[in-house]
Simulated assay, not measured.
Amino acid sequence: MNIVIIGQGAIGLLWYHHLAKSPKNTVSLLCSSRTTFIPSHYGFTDINQQSHELSLMVADNAAFIDAELILICVKSYQVNVAIEALKNKISPHVIIVFCHNGMGAYQNLASLQQPCLTLLTTHGCKINSPFHAQHTGLGHCDLGSIHGEISPLMRANITSTLKQALPTLTFTNDIKTKQWLKLAINCVINPLTAVENIDNGQLLNEKFNPIITELISEIITVAAYENVKFDFNELQEKIMQVAKKTAKNCSSMRSDILQQRKTEIDYINGYIVTLAKKSGILVPKNEMLVQQVKALQVS
């Protein structure tokens, strides 16, 4: 399969590395326009702590013309720019896959001719240095359609290609609930670890129970207006399981703050706040965290 990956961050390099392993795939990478130097090789440290240096194929216009699958692996606030830059380069038949945190990053899907999917992952990955990623934790991926029609054959082909590259992966017809579950987890773990400057596992301390309880209650209320139903105890258990499983991890939002980068808060807790305002719901704890994270991040 001809595949173009957009974004040389942790998730972009994770997918590039695993998809490029297969001789059945032709994979190229489009880097950020702000990148001043693109090396001929990239570094990758696998889950077994083994480091590799491998050839990097950079995407050109021909790669976009021939692409059957495009994975957009950029920050939520970069998605609109990435899509607008793509529109005149790609075939109407190419499949676009969004691989970013949060929700509400691209609201103009109806203007796209191309079918669109979203890919959610719980795999852990981080950037050790520019163009060197490290796979820090095994996880699961959920793939689902969010716009347009995709043939059963193409859907099966894409699912198989991605699943072979990075197990485990499931195609689901209920991707909206999966998106909301990931959003809820991110709404608790990301901002609290960023504001408190702590590893994920430290949220298991009982002193955080009151604010976690209030955040979950607010999220469940807003989700219900979007026809997504959560059980409080089940959602709380899931969030705490993730915190425990990733106990030593530094969340992406905390990492952004520490490295003086813009965060994705507008598409995580900020998304909850936006929906709440439309529905006349009060979400004071989510609003508070949005303000606290924005006070810490670079403008």
Rank of each mutant, 00 (worst) to 15 (best):
V4I: 10
V4Q: 05
I5R: 09
A10P: 12
G12T: 02
L13S: 01
L14V: 00
K21L: 01
P23A: 03
K24F: 07
T26I: 06
V27K: 00
V27I: 05
L29F: 00
S32C: 00
T35E: 06
T36R: 05
F37N: 09
P39S: 00
Y42D: 02
Q49H: 05
Q50V: 14
H52P: 08
E53V: 15
E53P: 05
S55I: 12
V58R: 08
A59Q: 15
D60A: 02
D60N: 14
I65N: 01
I65C: 08
L71V: 13
I72N: 05
I72W: 06
K75N: 02
K75H: 05
N80M: 06
A82P: 11
I83R: 04
K89I: 00
I90Q: 07
F98M: 13
N101F: 13
G102A: 02
N108G: 00
Q113S: 15
Q113D: 15
T118V: 15
L120E: 07
L120I: 13
C125R: 04
N128P: 06
S129Q: 15
F131H: 03
F131C: 06
F131N: 01
C141P: 01
E149H: 12
P152T: 12
M154C: 03
R155G: 10
A165P: 02
P167I: 12
T168P: 10
T172E: 11
D174N: 11
K176Q: 14
L183K: 14
C187V: 15
V188K: 13
L192I: 15
E196I: 06
N197I: 15
N197W: 04
I198E: 10
F208R: 00
I211W: 04
I216Q: 06
E218Y: 00
V228H: 10
F230Q: 07
N233P: 02
L235I: 13
L235K: 03
E237G: 04
M240C: 05
K248P: 01
N249L: 04
C250T: 14
S252Y: 09
S255K: 12
S255G: 05
D256F: 11
L258N: 11
Q260L: 11
R261P: 12
I265Y: 00
Y267Q: 07
N269T: 08
Y271T: 01
T274Y: 02
T274G: 03
P284S: 06
K285M: 09
V293T: 06
A295I: 09
L296K: 12
S299N: 15
